[in-house]
Amino acid sequence: MADDAESVVGNEVVEQVAHLARIQIDSDSVSNYASEMSGVLELAAQMDQVDTSLVEPMAHPVRAVQRLREDVVTETDRREAFQDIAPSVENGYYLVPPVIE
């Protein structure tokens, strides 16, 4: 990780990451995000002070393992209740703009 805040995250990286996260960023705020993200990543760079090559990453705070359950239906069908709160539905389907022209 770089020492210079400017070089940690540049404008192109912000635009690329914003696309991955599907968030539109106005062009005039890109450089602000770049410098704020750089600040956070500089903070994160403090982690490099310690050698963790022999440390296992934490998987769960109390070392619990994923619980399994019987493969049976546990939820009732509440499609109408859930679709009532959707921005746009028709005949039980969620509506979005056409994907294929």
Binding site: V14, V17, A18, L20, A21, I23, I25, Y33, V40, L41
Partner: peptide
């Protein structure tokens, strides 16, 4: 997402995505 989320939330999503 741009309209629905505020600045801090967007910043954290971007940092996390990165």
């Amino acid at each position: 997402r741009a309209e629905g989320f505020g600045r801090e939330v967007k910043r954290r999503i971007l940092v996390g995505t990165y």
